[in-house]
């Protein structure tokens, strides 16, 4: 793959990330009847540049296996904590992956954890949304790592807490723009109030899992990275 097209794809990622919400808003403004389908398609296409860049970079086996291990643990953790609704360790693990291996790896871990764990729970209309959102959680964690804020763990915990809300809020979009008509401030606020309890549970769960694993797992992953010379 040429350097030029790779550079193009690197630019495409943040562009798509910004374009997605704008497109979603447009579908609602123009009052298209098929918003439930259209919004799902937008989300699926939003993931294309990430997957394309990953595929085209022809990753070496050593670069993909740590992501697989993290996705397995995330998926297993989700299955293990399934009895408590919305209390899941996936976000915490995805954040650690993004911090240790960079934004792209964070995205892949998130998206794959969602897809793989749904292979156990059954796929649903939520699958592409979960893939995108968990991918985003990992991607942003990888990006923010370079900022001075993430030098202190407390800010990472805060990010984990906020990511729980981000997850719920993005997941709400499909329902709101697909199934509520007309969309008014009351209906939107109503939907967000309805999901508030679940979002808080998810946010708290993320922090609860992040506190014990963040430092030890990062240490382990960094050690593995150093020992085997991964992702250079």
């Amino acid at each position: 793959m040429s350097v030029k097209s790779r550079r193009l794809l690197i630019i495409a990622e943040p562009v798509v990330m910004l374009l997605t919400p704008i497109l979603l808003v447009f579908t609602t403004i123009y009052d298209i009847e098929q918003t439930a389908l259209l919004s799902s398609l937008i989300i699926i296409f939003a993931m294309v540049p990430f997957f394309a860049r990953f595929e085209l970079s022809k990753p070496k086996p050593r670069d993909i296996v740590p992501l697989v291990v993290l996705s397995v643990i995330a998926a297993l953790g989700r299955v293990a904590f399934a009895p408590i609704p919305h209390f899941k360790p996936v976000s915490a693990i995805v954040i650690v992956s993004g911090l240790s291996f960079g934004p792209q790896a964070g995205f892949m871990t998130g998206a794959l954890s969602a897809l793989a764990s749904n292979m156990f729970f059954g796929q649903g209309p939520w699958t592409p949304w979960q893939m995108f959102t968990w991918g985003l959680v990992g991607y942003l964690a990888g990006l923010l790592k370079k900022t001075f804020l993430f030098k202190k763990p407390i800010f990472i915990y805060i990010y984990g807490f906020l990511s729980g809300f981000m997850f719920g809020w993005i997941m709400n979009i499909w329902y709101i723009i697909g199934f509520i008509k007309p969309i008014t401030s009351t209906t939107v606020v109503g939907a967000y109030i309805a999901s508030f309890y679940f979002d808080v549970t998810h946010a708290v769960a993320t922090v609860v899992f992040l506190i014990p694993i963040l430092i030890p797992w990062q240490k382990k992953l960094n050690r593995i990275k150093l020992k085997f010379g991964l992702m250079e």
Binding site: F51, F54, I64, L67, L112, A116, F120
Partner: peptide
């Protein structure tokens, strides 16, 4: 279409019982 992703998925499917 996505050979690497598909490979990773099938590795995940294999490693879930192994990890358990």
């Amino acid at each position: 279409i996505l050979p690497t992703i598909a490979l990773m998925l099938s590795m995940i499917m294999k490693w879930v019982p192994v990890t358990k």
